[in-house]
Design a protein around this nucleic acid. Structure first.
Lengths: 342, 342
DNA sequence: GTGAAAGCGCTAACAA
DNA sequence: TTGTTAGCGCTTTCAC
């Protein structure tokens, strides 16, 4: 049985600034001043206005304000996959800072539909968002090679220091070589790499870090130990690991460039009857929460996710506050977290 | 060394509809008609306008349109934690449908800041979003008990069939008793429950399902086997499991109302030297992707996450299209997924 | 300290 | 078929 319709305030909110002005017996300009907490309004007048606001239940129409002030107070955030915990944490960091500064976050999942990259930047051009933070390597790459360079946005995680777009990320080369150095220290000589597509800067940097660490130990590059995957989900990691292990001279350790990949690797290894780390050591990247929950715990390169997001938001806000400002690129520290898998 | 500033289009886009009209030698009304693909514009005129649009690089200011049409084409989505893969999948479902209908999703993380519940609904009142989907039990509860009932929103996952707000979710009572029935069938008699706070409807329903299944097997309620947790993260699950197992008459099986909780439980059990499922069986809820990756695989109640999100979006869109329409509540099927943990 | 009035860029009557 | 015009609700000079 459908419940009775409850009595309450009307759905529509027809209370405009002029209604408040009329109710309070002042002009709309005064109401505007009060709403914006500007000085130059006598206390009694302010009280009157506030009383009317309360009485009428007035809420400002931010659309109108945005049209007037030409700012939407929205920050666009483009992520390749909201479902990936790595990005989710970064988004929380962005959200925190945005909120502190009176902005809302408009989150767009760029991975959800292909071939529409440009349109998200259009949100900026259409004034639906004041600025953007891009976490998607594909979109970053695309934007860097187009006129989007001049739009108010910052790159997070995937970035090109040589282009005039503010960025925040980690030293991918260093991080990867740290991971491999650890494996080397444990005596491994045949170390597999499961990497993202080389079209991404971060993938190339991590591969180079891997290669350089190997070279430092006098180990020559062996392409049969390197695999490229298209996504970073569990299944991709499993599939790549299966390929790697099916070879005659299989690796004794695997470095995957994301924890989700690494967890997929461990899953595949288990399927193969291999023990981790005794038969094959595994090391991941990111340090998402679940890495500490599984058995064995996943050894990984931790990225400061929250801080990455917070910094990205701050850089963007700085750029918005002063479009001329030289917003720097910032590289945050990573950390090798030792657990049981390697 | 900073790169040379590249030549390109200006950051600002001062091209307004009147500029296009002037360039094309027509009125703004005609430009508007063309932009909105309305009929009643001769082909040659349309061509002229389109040419000017291209020449000037015109992008419509949606803020202005929204102000005029009183719709923002934004859908607000409130989630308690974007980092939880369960919500992330639902959000993807929402995003898919929203996009298909020309809407963008404004994602707000209600868990990120306490005591601001109301303000998100204000986004509706301020016309920054046309409608909202609420996935946060706390916010749903709060909204149901306030005037927000009349705002255009729908509840997802947490809902009250007795209130006139459209909803989509699963049969929590049934799902929980299905889970417990499985444990019972495996011979367990002392079954622990790790549940969310009773202030949530879904938590009460799942508890009742648990209790009813037990009663059906002639097992009396035993409060020492029931634990309430405040969050649903891994740590909360671990802590609750540790408590449960520290008791003299510890359970031989544990049902946790979310996979993240259940994974935390398994982690704690391992710490205690207990084997899963031999010493203690574990069953979760949601079927997030990682549930299939861990060892042993997590037996769980699968919720149709994508579909939950898609349905929520469709219900909301229906309500927006016709505010008078009687939008139904929909209950989607769940499914017991058997893996190694129970 | 407060008000009148001019728009921000767009859509939708209404005219022509 | 196309143009003219009046706002949408707000901020912001510029007067008073």
């Amino acid at each position: 049985m459908p419940p009775a319709v409850l009595n309450s305030l009307p759905t529509e909110n027809p209370v405009s600034i002029s209604a408040v002005a009329a109710h309070a017996g002042v002009s709309v300009a005064t109401v505007s001043r009060v709403m914006n907490e500007q000085s130059g309004v006598r206390a009694p007048t302010r009280e009157k206005v506030l009383a009317s606001v309360a009485a009428l239940g007035y809420r400002m129409n931010h659309l109108a304000r945005s049209l007037r002030t030409a700012e939407s107070r929205m920050l666009l955030t483009m992520v390749p996959d909201v479902g990936n915990p790595f990005y989710a944490q970064i988004v929380r960091g962005i959200d925190t800072v945005a909120r502190e500064h009176g902005y809302f976050v408009l989150l767009c999942d760029t991975g959800a539909d292909e071939g529409r990259e440009r349109s998200y930047f259009d949100l900026l051009r259409m004034h639906r968002a004041d600025g953007a933070i891009c976490l998607d390597p594909d979109t970053v790459q695309h934007a860097l090679s187009h006129e989007s360079i001049n739009l108010p946005w910052v790159a997070c995680c995937e970035f090109d220091p040589g282009v005039a777009v503010p960025y925040v990320g980690i030293d991918n080369h260093r991080a990867a070589s740290d991971a491999v150095a650890h494996l080397l220290a444990r005596g491994h000589r045949r170390i597999g790499l499961i990497n993202s597509d080389k079209r991404y800067l971060y993938a190339r940097q991590r591969q180079q870090g891997y290669l350089d660490a190997l070279a430092g130990a006098g180990i020559a590059r062996d392409d049969t130990l390197m695999r490229t995957v298209q996504g970073v989900d569990y299944e991709a990691g499993s599939a790549a690991a299966l390929e790697l292990m099916a070879q005659p001279d299989a690796p004794t350790a695997i470095f995957a460039v994301s924890d989700t990949l690494a967890i997929g690797v461990m899953s595949a290894l288990r399927q193969l009857g291999k023990r981790v780390p005794e038969d094959v050591a595994v090391i991941g990247f990111d340090d998402i929460a679940v890495a500490a929950q599984i058995a064995p715990g996943l050894t990984t390169i931790a990225q400061p996710m929250r801080e990455l997001g917070e910094t990205a938001a701050r850089l963007l806000l700085a750029r918005l506050a002063d479009p001329q400002a030289q917003v720097p690129g910032v590289v945050l520290p990573h950390q090798l977290v030792l657990r049981g898998s390697a």
